[in-house]
């Protein structure tokens, strides 16, 4: 029996264990999964002195309320998140991007994300989780990963295999930036759409619908007219692909997407904008901006350098 553990008092809406995701399985129908907002995932681990590929708890909108039992341990929350730490006699408001030490009996209550979707809770140590294909990431649709592939549940206990000896408190001044528009590279079926449809795609605003989850983001707004065929022979998908089915409303493939799809691809979100895309909550307005491959590659390199820079300063 582990002497360090968490009890889930309230699981939150969509709380799962996530890590860097799993590779080399698309051909059998298993998507990448992993933390949706990769940068915030990495920062969370760094703040508690974990390996960068350690498992964290990812939550959407409302996060978990947890009671901790065991030796003192550090934790940190990243994203744009409102949370509190309840100790014996006091309850303090927590700040994202700072690590805190908690002791036996303390509670962490993640109340909600603020105008964003995903947040991350990292604990300084190693959670005792099952790995499948080299990852503990939970895919709730296929029931793959740790926790039998299911979301966290009320009353559940999560053990820590070990806790970090390095308990230095860390903080960083990172601020999640919002972006004006999502940059996209022309899709392989771009010419399936009418001139008017293409114009609408780049010039009009779309609204993130409530029917969005780790699999995909559905958009509402002006319809994009197809003039060739509203279906293609099913073929592979990757995250960021924007498909437009017959109803004219775009769907963006996210980390748990189906690996094969039969709707025309109008565009693909540039990798540099993926972390910020997934944070757009229902009701948010999206505008797309065309970008070419070489600019997308350069911008991603800069984004990656910035991430490494942020991490090295923690």
């Amino acid at each position: 029996m582990s002497s360090n553990y968490l009890d889930i008092i309230r699981p939150g809406i969509n709380s799962t264990f996530q890590d860097k995701g799993r590779d080399h399985l698309y051909h059998i129908g298993i998507p990448f999964s992993g933390a949706m907002d990769n940068r915030n995932y990495l920062i969370a681990n760094k703040l508690v002195n974990n390996n960068l590929d350690s498992a964290v708890i990812e939550f959407a909108y409302q996060g978990p309320h947890i009671k901790y039992s065991g030796e003192n341990i550090n934790f940190a929350v990243t994203g744009d998140v409102i949370f509190s730490i309840k100790k014996k006699d006091t309850e303090i408001e927590g700040k994202c991007y700072e690590s805190y030490q908690i002791e036996n009996g303390d509670e962490i209550n993640i109340i909600s994300t603020n105008k964003s979707v995903y947040g991350y809770l990292a604990l300084g140590g190693e959670l005792d989780l099952k790995f499948q294909w080299n990852s503990c990431s939970i895919n709730t649709k296929a029931n793959i990963g740790s926790n039998d592939g299911k979301k966290l549940d009320v009353g559940q206990r999560i053990n820590l295999k070990k806790i970090n000896s390095n308990k230095n408190i860390k903080k960083t001044n990172y601020i999640n930036t919002k972006i004006e528009s999502i940059r996209v590279i022309k899709g392989t079926n771009f010419d399936y759409f009418s001139e008017e449809g293409k114009k609408i795609f780049y010039e009009k605003e779309f609204t993130v619908s409530k029917l969005s989850d780790r699999m995909g983001m559905r958009l509402g707004g002006p319809k994009i007219d197809n003039i060739v065929n509203t279906n293609i022979k099913s073929e592979g998908l990757i995250k960021g692909v924007i498909q437009v089915p017959a109803d004219g409303n775009p769907i963006i493939m996210l980390s748990d997407h189906g690996t094969i799809g039969g709707y025309p691809k109008i565009g693909v979100v540039a990798s540099v904008d993926y972390d910020r895309l997934v944070q757009m909550s229902p009701g948010s307005k999206i505008k797309f901006k065309e970008i070419n491959l070489s600019d997308a590659e350069t911008l991603f390199k800069l984004y990656e350098m910035e991430t490494q820079n942020l991490l090295s300063q923690i």
Binding site: H24, Y26, G236, L237, I238, T259, E304
Partner: peptide, 22 residues
């Protein structure tokens, strides 16, 4: 190379942009 997705008449090869490029 992260993933290969064969289908009827297409093969999609996805890669880690941190390690390689198009």
């Amino acid at each position: 190379i992260n993933n290969l997705t064969p289908s009827y008449n297409k093969l999609i090869i996805s890669y880690d942009l941190k390690k390689t490029n198009f």
